[in-house]
């Protein structure tokens, strides 16, 4: 079976303020249902890589293949759609829309994708909230939640379009170890039960050890 995500010789340079070769010949594969963590020293290029893999950053050379489709040369608008269909993203800082309710935050990506009607989307969103144990908070404004709660809502939002891959940039970075464990368990469960692949950047060794595979980065290279 084809890998769900594959890169071939991705290179990226920053030119400002001086030319800086941040990613060097990155070739990797992510299999279906695989739970992979990315580790490496601060500044080695993990976030930069994740932005490219999530199709948000298009300024690179090399090839990015998602679910067998080469998306390296797609237009921004097409990428927006590919992204919402295939990838759920969890940021280090939860990043919810503060004025909207928890439920609306989760529903918006699905409403935009427009695959289901409003009612179905609402039902799905409530389901995802339930998975994360947050159904009581559905009608709260997102700005009123605690950090850990926001993080869980962000995961629920990443799930709403039933993506094939969930990417996370230190999703447990600012959670205490108890909450970090909860988040890890949730992600693990999701990858087992909903057949999602996970690609999670983390500095947490305990977290990484529990994943299927660790990709180690250093100075823009993948070293293992």
């Amino acid at each position: 079976m084809k890998p769900i995500l594959e890169t071939k010789d991705i290179n990226k340079y920053f030119t400002d303020p001086v030319e800086f070769h941040v990613l060097k010949d990155i070739s990797l594969k992510l299999e279906r249902k695989e739970f992979v963590s990315i580790m490496g020293k601060s500044g080695c290029g993990k976030s930069t890589l994740l932005y490219i893999l999530s199709t948000m950053d298009t300024n690179y050379t090399g090839e990015l293949i998602i679910d067998g489709k080469n998306v390296s040369h797609e237009s921004k608008d097409n990428l927006a759609r590919i992204r919402s269909e295939n990838i759920g993203f969890v940021f280090q800082f939860h990043y919810l829309l503060p004025e909207f309710t928890v439920l609306k935050n989760i529903m918006l990506p699905a409403l935009k994708l427009g695959k289901f009607d409003h009612k179905t989307i609402k039902k799905n969103a409530l389901e995802k909230l339930e998975i994360l144990g947050m159904q009581e908070q559905a009608d709260k404004k997102a700005s009123r939640l605690s950090g850990g709660q926001k993080q869980r809502v962000a995961i629920a939002r990443a799930l709403i379009n039933n993506p094939k891959i969930i990417m996370g940039d230190e999703p447990t970075g600012n959670l205490d170890s108890k909450n970090a464990n909860i988040v890890f368990d949730i992600l693990r469960e999701l990858s087992n039960e909903l057949d999602m692949s996970m690609l999670i950047v983390t500095h947490d060794k305990d977290f990484a050890k529990k994943t299927d595979r660790i990709i180690e980065m250093e100075d823009g290279y993948i070293i293992s």
Binding site: S54, K76, A80, S84
Partner: peptide
């Protein structure tokens, strides 16, 4: 956020 979650 909107752009990251599929809005053009």
């Amino acid at each position: 956020i909107l752009k990251a979650t599929g809005f053009t």
